[in-house]
Design a protein around this nucleic acid. Structure first.
Lengths: 202, 202
DNA sequence: CGAAGTATTCAACATATGTAGAATAATCCG
DNA sequence: CGGATTATTCTACATATGTTGAATACTTCG
């Protein structure tokens, strides 16, 4: 809204940062498809063309905006390594909720969840990201030949929780005390990670 | 493709049905946002205007296409009622996978999952649907004052599973034998449904 | 100060989309 | 058969979107 005259602005504001910030919020709030460059631009108080001038295309902006400062795989790794095996499940959920409850309106993973919608290249990227980064990290730390499956099981429960609590905001999931949720979900994760996985005769 | 002359076609083909069919596939495959009326029309071998002539708007088409022949709540109810309490979890997952594995490319719930993306009225409708129909059904059959929470817990695990297996097609989740998955997930559901839900001192 | 570079906006394009209205062909009913 | 109804398409519009290229104002550096 700052009186749209042309040309460079005085001073040296971190416009690129503001754009990234706005983009992040926009993608988190609406998912890739529904987010618009014009929306981002407006939110950043900037012309749409500038957004593309910096980031080239909507997809690249998406990637740039969601470049997580903390590598989720690293978090998973540190929890798996630094926690007593019996507490891994509960600890994992607790940490997760702790991080997400703060600043849930700009958590990149919510955008990721939302963007699962389509079938375009972005959705593909999301799938690969989850498969290669998160599940693989679990897999390399978990026991047995079926570590991959264990990772996927954990992923499925975690994804469902995140989806319900942060994207859909389903009650009472959205407002239950995080500690309690950790206590409830903990054993499930624990079982997926270290418990016995039944087989069935074909 | 059938030589686009104007006017009414000879015979009495069930065009409306074909449109619904195409719409269903389109919504399931791409979610609400990415699905287009023109796409549906083309798939149904029909002019876009006809689609709107019958269904008024894209949203109404969505609703019409996803009107499930079988009420999911009814299925849940019958399983809860007709299964030995100890087997409910496994049975639920088994039934779920059984239904979905067949004709997974036209299962309305996949469209629903995909359409969670946005924040528009459709996403709201989805949330209400899940809350009022599915979770509520669980809630009314499950024990204790926290039946609602139990329903949500089950919902979160189920949603995660469906998301991973059918929408994201994550490996190895997507290709694991359904019976085995039922055996694995069963106890989790069982615990959410009837087990003890820990509380924590604030 | 002047030249070069950079940040920023304007205006426009090409395309896609939901949607409306008029026109045409088949069927149905008397 | 003939009028009414229904099914179907064509054309067009308004809008939104990603994207581009030229123009302008500021900053930096010689």
């Amino acid at each position: 809204m700052t009186a749209g005259r042309k040309g460079r602005r005085p001073g040296s504001p971190d416009t690129q940062g503001q754009i990234l910030d706005a983009a992040s919020r926009e993608f988190v709030g609406r998912g890739f498809e529904r987010a618009t460059i014009r929306g981002v631009a407006t939110a950043a108080g900037v012309d749409p063309a500038l957004v593309l001038h910096y980031f080239g295309s909507k997809e690249q902006l998406f990637i740039a905006a969601l470049r997580v400062p903390v590598d989720p795989a690293a978090i998973v790794r540190s929890i798996l390594d630094e926690t007593a095996p019996d507490d891994v499940g509960e600890r994992l959920i607790a940490t997760l909720l702790d991080v997400w409850d703060a600043g849930a309106d700009r958590n990149p993973m919510i955008a990721v969840l939302r963007s699962i919608a389509g079938d375009g290249p972005v959705a593909d990227a999301v799938r690969q990201f989850i498969e290669r980064s998160i599940i693989a990290t679990f897999a390399e730390r978990l026991p047995g030949p079926e570590a991959q499956l264990r990772g996927a099981l954990i992923g499925s429960q975690v994804a469902g929780l995140l989806l319900g609590r942060y994207v859909l905001r389903l009650e009472p999931l959205a407002s239950t005390d995080p500690k309690r949720l950790a206590a409830i979900y903990g054993p499930t994760i624990q079982r997926y990670a270290f418990g016995e996985l039944p087989t069935v005769g074909s």
